[in-house]
């Protein structure tokens, strides 16, 4: 495997990826944050934080389809390792998602009734969104090891929702989902950072083919 192979892979991989779930998730996520904000000025920053989180989950759900590969049996024994193939997909989707996130938060801050949006904790929410995305990818990569037909999303998408449900109910001191005014807000984001690191390691580990 070399850098040239990875570069050459970009175009056909972009063609092979199922983009529709990602686009659907991004569109819905954008709408979920911006439409209520445009409709009313009664939303507090707690409301907007929740909506931004739901928007991030929408895209994470779309990302759970990123590693779907109907041709997986044909690529089982090619010299290019699975980790490289997965990283190419992430390299394609990552910048697009980052751009979408910047656009979504930017619009939320500048349009509609942005009195509350001005206080959106952008950095913290970006950390949360990155963690959700990495978790979706890690779950897809784990599903890759368990499925033979390359249909990873059928496992990964429900698993993303389940993990989010668990995260939503986590008690102190491992809580993740808090209001911005909560005294444990900063501490909870150390937990988010730890979850992000765990998800990234899990993605790399699961993408690695067994020796």
């Amino acid at each position: 495997m070399n850098a040239r192979t990875l570069y050459l892979l970009l175009r056909p991989t972009a063609h092979a990826v199922k983009w529709r779930p990602m686009v659907a998730g991004a569109t819905l996520g954008l709408a979920i944050l911006l439409v209520p904000e445009a409709l009313t000025s009664r939303l507090t920053d707690a409301h907007l934080t929740t909506l931004a989180r739901i928007a991030a989950i929408c895209v994470a759900l779309g990302a759970a389809f990123l590693l779907d590969d109907p041709a997986t049996r044909s690529t089982l024994t090619v010299p290019t390792p699975r980790l490289a193939r997965n990283l190419v997909r992430v390299a394609l989707a990552g910048p697009a998602v980052a751009l979408w996130w910047a656009l979504t938060l930017g619009l939320a801050k500048t349009t509609g009734h942005h009195a509350a949006a001005a206080h959106l904790p952008v950095a913290a929410l970006t950390l949360e969104a990155a963690t959700l995305l990495a978790t979706a990818l890690a779950l897809s990569a784990i599903a890759q090891r368990r499925t033979v037909d390359g249909n990873t999303s059928v496992v990964a998408a429900p698993a993303v929702l389940l993990l989010v449900a668990v995260a939503w109910f986590l008690p102190h001191p491992v809580e993740l989902v808090l209001r911005p005014t909560d005294p444990h807000w900063t501490a909870s984001h150390y937990n988010w950072a730890a979850a992000l690191a765990t998800a990234l390691v899990a993605f790399l580990w699961a993408s690695h083919e067994r020796a």
Partner: peptide, 25 residues
């Protein structure tokens, strides 16, 4: 046939739980 639609629908329901109250005032 898209498997992403149902999870997204669930998220719409959740978003409704979060903000319909202030929206409906």
């Amino acid at each position: 046939r898209s498997a992403v639609v149902a999870p997204l629908a669930l998220l719409v329901v959740l978003a409704g739980l979060a903000v319909l109250e202030p929206l409906a005032n």
